[in-house]
Amino acid sequence: MTANSSKDIAITTLLSVGQHPLSARPRRAEEDARALEVMLQFAPASMKALHAGDTADAQNLTVLKDYLGMGIPSIDVIPTSADSDAAEALASYLANAGDGQPHILLTGTRSEVGESSGFLPYLLAEKLAIPFVPNICDILSIDMAAGVAEVMQSLPRGQRRKIKTQLPFVASVGMAAAIPRQSSFGAARRGVINTVSSIDTVADEAQTAWKTEPARKRPKRLKVVKAKTAAERFKAATAKVQSSGGEKIYEVDKAAEAILKLLKEEKVL
């Protein structure tokens, strides 16, 4: 593998309109901006940014401009309304992209507003029938000849894990990735928003049956500090949690059974 060949690939980043937790104003979604930063830093031959959403909303456009300000020359926008299924629209756009289909599709781990289920990358990976790597913080290398990429996955407590995966794949980028670069007014002004009009949107049937209400505040577990020394506190903050009990199940059927059993025990089902 040479350095050049690793750049000779196509990456697409999905961007959403985020929301500031205190002011509730639309903004660059923190994780999506990090995903874009991962792509810009890796600087592959083909970079694309993709957004599915309401293009008529002026505030959404301002946020897309903020993404453009990071230095990506254009964003493709699939116009979707609030009651349509963004996953369907994105999947059909990507599936029909032909040669334009990216080797790597980057997303955030979950959107900052709306359903915020974090399910979109899973759905896209399923629909495109490619692997999904959750919560990465960097793309380390790509071997085009072998069709394999190495990414860094971030785990709790600052732990990192290198993962090798086959191309193409979907990966979500978490908050452990590099802080996104500043958005510049000039680049935002020069950037172009291309509306993709050929995509049929599918109404989100399930959504129509849902009732939404404001989230209620959940009680927080009190934090009891057991550590007596600085060394113990440091260890508590960083050490890997040792799992106790549990078992590793490799057969799919048995694994599903075990999950089902746990859900029943926890009275989820």
Binding site: Q182, S184, F185, G186
Partner: peptide
């Protein structure tokens, strides 16, 4: 700042905060 997006230190954070929270 406007063309290069290259304000040093914590300034980028400050400018972002001004955008989203005034």
């Amino acid at each position: 700042t406007l063309e290069k997006g290259n304000t040093p230190g914590k300034s980028a954070e400050l400018l972002e905060n001004l955008k989203t929270t005034d």
